[in-house]
């Protein structure tokens, strides 16, 4: 009977304890706990973060005095930082507490370690409430294997870095090089005097080259005009005169854009070559006129090359 009484008393006390405990959990509870993503391969110096969200009746506040101490080192695990914030929601306060730990423990071989259990206390109600954040276990890896003394043997394989796919860049590089080469070729084609490419040694290319070498005097002007007429004649296939320009342009439409310049050239050439005795229509200095002939021959050369 005595034993029965004792058992009854124990059962009653346990029930009361459970009731009191269940009443406490109703006031405070852990909503969410976020642990580090990786639980193995943790080495000395690594930083591990935990975040816990705790919901509590709004009459309670987190006791700052009871917070774990920053810098506290437990079994080589140091709490390096702790921050929290709270939000109110329907007579409930939600505390988000961020814990940052740094591993300072050392071991010669892989060993299971843990982030320690933390307790947070809430005050402001009829009685103080507390909630425990459970321990979190992880595998600690030593930097070196036990017993290895040779640095060379101590090397640990590392992950081979993933290769970046360069094929697109190669394509772009090749395209750029091709464009560059084409551009250079084009520039040479447009500007070069020498015959490096087919179609470069046209009649006006030759005329332009010859005229550029001439001095700027009266005799050279006549010579330059001769080169120009020679080029026109070569292209036309017969002597070309001012009254045949329309026919020439019909047969050689690539020169159409310089129609007016060609007309002016023929008028000036006639004045210079055939009206020299009696007319002074050609008032320009030889230097200026030679400059104009060089420019015109270059433009005609461009027409000839189709650029």
């Amino acid at each position: 009977m005595k034993n029965l009484m004792i058992k009854f008393a124990l059962s009653a006390s346990l029930l009361l304890l459970a009731a009191s405990a269940s009443g406490q959990t109703l006031d405070v509870k852990i909503l969410n706990l976020t642990n580090p993503a990786q639980s193995n391969g943790i080495q000395v110096g690594d930083v591990l973060n935990r975040t816990v969200e705790i919901e509590v009746d709004s009459q309670y506040q987190l006791s700052k005095a009871a917070l774990p101490l920053k810098g506290e080192n437990r079994d080589g695990i140091e709490l390096s930082d702790l921050t929290f914030k709270s939000t109110q929601h329907d007579k409930k306060s939600i505390y988000t507490i961020a814990l940052r730990y740094q591993v300072f423990a050392s071991a010669a071989k892989p060993v299971v370690m843990q982030l320690p259990e933390e307790q947070f206390t809430f005050t402001g109600g009829t009685q103080a409430l507390s909630v425990n954040v459970p321990v979190w276990h992880f595998w600690f890896s030593p930097l070196v294997a036990e017993g290895i003394t040779n640095a060379k043997d101590n090397l640990q394989p590392q992950y081979k870095p993933a290769l970046i796919d360069l094929s697109a860049h190669y394509t772009r590089l090749l395209l750029s090089l091709a464009l560059l080469a084409t551009g250079l070729l084009g520039l040479i084609y447009v500007n070069a005097d020498k015959r490096w490419l087919p179609f470069m040694n046209g009649d006006f290319a030759q005329a332009h080259r010859s005229i550029k070498k001439l001095r700027s005097d009266q005799a050279s002007t006549r010579q330059a005009l001769m080169y120009m007429h020679q080029a026109f004649n070569q292209i036309y296939g017969a002597n070309l005169f001012a009254n045949e320009l329309d026919q020439f342009l019909v047969v050689n439409p690539k020169f159409l854009k310089l129609k007016e310049d060609i007309r002016i050239f023929f008028a000036q050439s006639n004045a210079a070559l055939f009206a020299g005795h009696t007319q002074t229509s050609h008032q320009k200095s030889s230097e200026q006129y030679m400059g104009e002939l060089i420019t015109l021959s270059k433009r005609l050369r461009d027409c000839e090359r189709g650029v």
Partner: peptide, 19 residues
């Protein structure tokens, strides 16, 4: 003749070129 005989004459301009 009109198509072929050049003016200004190329043969007579040649010495000027050489000069």
């Amino acid at each position: 003749i009109l198509s072929t005989v050049a003016v200004p004459s190329q043969t007579r301009s040649a010495p000027a070129k050489a000069a």
